[in-house]
Design a binder for these strands. Structure first.
Length: 290
DNA sequence: CAAGTGCCTTTATC
DNA sequence: AGATAAAGGCACT
């Protein structure tokens, strides 16, 4: 199946999958292979043309955020030269609509880890607790279901490289599996409400809740603040805060709870309803500066 | 190459 | 309330 992207629908598949919002895609021979739910599909982009196999158009449009009005979003978040440069340089980066369950576990695992390590953990988890699926002669694994992780034991999870995160993953899996936590329902709630629900789960703090809200629930105003975003604010946006506050957050690598709220709220107020897009463009921009 | 630092933080404990 | 420490282990320099 093919989809021709129009001028009003800029999209860059490579940047979207490489910017660190998702961890289980593989590029093999020019095609990106991904697993969602039970099935494997592949997709590639050649110029304005998006070609995909084993998946329908509606899924692709939704998953890759192609229904977002990106030209409008980019003009709204280009509030200053830094955001504008990032928006121009990485135009086509889109916020995905990941599966909330996979996204939740991914970001619980992601705390205090670097991206290659996160990818490895999630691969180990999927290999051990997911289902093997063959596609075009290659082997893939589905992401473990809440049920399969809920009945895992802590040691098995630790063997996947989760360390102290094993307990959080296990307890969260139990909550979701026992049906006293309805992840899909969070999509219907406001950002604030969805986030406060997520915060009830073990291993989910402000940062993880914001990432899940942004990358899987479509809450585009969520503004996750990690060490990179904190650095960016100190570097480029310090004038928006009292100098005492900037001095304070510069001292530590990651912000405390009240500092996090202040930084995140700044992002939402300053960039507006698409603050999450601004966050991801700035994050990627700063990381590419190395 | 070994050792040190950093990592898309959260939680428990003062 | 607010600061501080502890918690895997891997990847990069």
């Amino acid at each position: 199946m093919k989809l021709l992207l129009s001028h009003s629908c800029p999209f860059n598949l490579d940047i979207t999958l490489c910017c660190g919002q998702v961890f289980r895609w593989n590029k093999i021979g020019g095609w990106w292979f991904g697993v969602t739910g039970e099935k494997v599909f592949k997709i590639r982009q050649i110029g304005e043309e998006l070609e995909f196999v084993n998946v329908d158009e509606d899924f692709v449009k939704n998953y890759f955020g192609l229904n977002d009005d990106l030209p409008k979003i980019l003009s709204q978040i280009s509030k200053d030269k830094h955001a504008k440069t990032a928006a121009e340089k990485f135009k086509g980066l889109r916020i995905l609509r990941q599966d909330p369950w996979e996204c939740l576990i991914s970001y619980i695992c992601a705390t205090y880890k670097n991206i290659p390590a996160i990818e490895k953990m999630l691969f180990n988890l999927s290999r051990k607790f997911g289902e093997k699926v063959a596609f075009e002669g290659l082997e893939f694994y589905t992401f473990p279901t809440p049920a399969s992780l809920a009945k895992a034991n802590k040691r098995e999870l630790q063997e996947c490289g989760l360390g102290y995160r094993a307990e959080y993953v296990l307890e969260t899996a139990k909550r979701v599996h026992n049906d006293d936590f309805h992840l899909e329902n969070l999509k219907k709630l406001s950002y604030e409400k969805a986030r406060s629900e997520l915060l009830k789960l073990p291993g989910v703090g402000l940062k993880v809740a914001d990432c899940v809200s942004l990358f899987s629930l479509g809450k585009l105003e969520a503004f996750p603040v990690d060490v990179w975003i904190k650095r960016i604010i100190v570097k480029y946006y310090a004038s928006h805060f009292e100098s005492e506050f900037v001095k304070k957050i510069s001292l530590h690598k990651s912000p405390g709870k009240s500092e996090y709220e202040k930084l995140s709220l700044f992002g939402r107020r300053y960039f507006g309803e698409y603050a999450g897009y601004a966050q991801e463009y700035l994050y990627h921009y700063e990381r590419m500066q190395r």
